[in-house]
């Protein structure tokens, strides 16, 4: 396998003069990444490159290492080996440019906070330890809430939100980070249809602004409608590229194994073509 990081990387060292270089560095570049929990590898020697301004779905069966891949990219789990670069930079120098939407179930929603408090956490990096919260920070948090259709919920206790509303709040918090690369972990899991629509609209807006979206996605029936690129993984990278090329029954069989019958894939593609 060719390691994308082994190719000459003239671009990445010249931060600040990107305009003069012919092609911008990828928003996300992963080379030879291996992550193990205990003695069980979850992600094995994975290479991945995501061009700036694109929308990519990370797809694979349960336990395929999708979430772990995102977490390793964000430095939340320590890889055994491999390298991660964001916009050609190591994570420590690119933190301001990356936003994260974790799985909804990863936090305790009984925490004493209201919706706007959670969104304001997206501004913590900017606020640091000492800066006071100013009206313009609140205004920005409110604007992020408005973008996901939750402006009326600012002072609502987070424990009273539905699953879809929780997901919208998490997206608003990521928007408050005003990043260039958005990493989302199953943003559509367990949300209502209206929320799914609202979220995908925001993501497509972000993409139109030139930002990069990478989302762990579990619903094979909506990939074609939502994403332009897909990255198929089951511990190892199975296939990557435009959805039209990667979303084939043979690739899905390789990723899902026996869990996905030929007929299912065919049915999905037929339904896709019809829509």
């Amino acid at each position: 396998m060719v390691n994308p990081l082994s190719s000459p990387r003239a671009v990445s060292r010249t931060d600040g003069v990107v305009a003069t270089t012919p092609t911008p560095p990828p928003a996300l570049e992963v080379g030879g990444l291996t992550v193990a929990y205990g003695e069980k590898p979850v992600v094995f020697s994975v290479d991945m490159a995501v061009a700036q301004g694109t929308m990519t779905a990370i797809v694979g069966p349960n336990g395929a290492g999708k979430s772990t891949l995102l977490k390793a990219v964000l430095g939340l789990v320590k890889p055994l080996s491999g390298e991660v670069r964001l916009f050609g930079l190591p994570l420590s120098r690119a933190r301001d440019r990356v936003a994260y939407v974790p799985q909804r179930a990863s936090v305790d929603w009984d925490f004493p906070a209201c919706v706007i408090d959670v969104v304001l956490m997206g501004l913590h990096r900017e606020l640091g330890l000492l800066r006071r919260l100013r009206p313009e920070h609140l205004a920005r948090a409110r604007a992020c809430l408005a973008r996901v259709g939750m402006e009326d919920f600012a002072s609502r206790q987070i424990g009273q939100l539905s699953g879809g509303q929780q997901q919208r709040v998490f997206l608003a918090r990521a928007l408050a980070q005003s990043a260039d690369l958005y990493l989302l972990d199953e943003p559509f899991a367990g949300v209502d249809a209206a929320t799914e629509k609202a979220i995908i609209a925001v993501l497509k807006d972000l993409r139109a602004e030139g930002r990069t979206i990478v989302a762990v996605h579990h619903d094979l029936s909506t990939i074609r409608a939502y994403f332009e690129h897909m990255f198929l993984i089951n511990m190892r990278a199975i296939a990557a590229g435009p959805v039209a090329e990667v979303f084939t029954s043979s690739n899905l069989q390789r990723a899902y194994g026996g869990r996905l019958g030929e007929a299912q894939v065919a049915g999905m593609q037929a339904a896709d073509a019809a829509s």
């Binding site: 977490k71 964000l74 933190r95 990356v98 994260y100 990863s106 936090v107 925490f111 956490m121 913590h124």
Partner: peptide, 22 residues
């Protein structure tokens, strides 16, 4: 008083706090 913000952020969602540089 000095550490209230990061301590609350870590209490609610330590992963997200880490992503924002805490």
């Amino acid at each position: 008083l000095l550490l209230r913000r990061p301590m609350l952020a870590v209490g609610f969602d330590s992963d997200f706090a880490a992503v924002t540089g805490t």
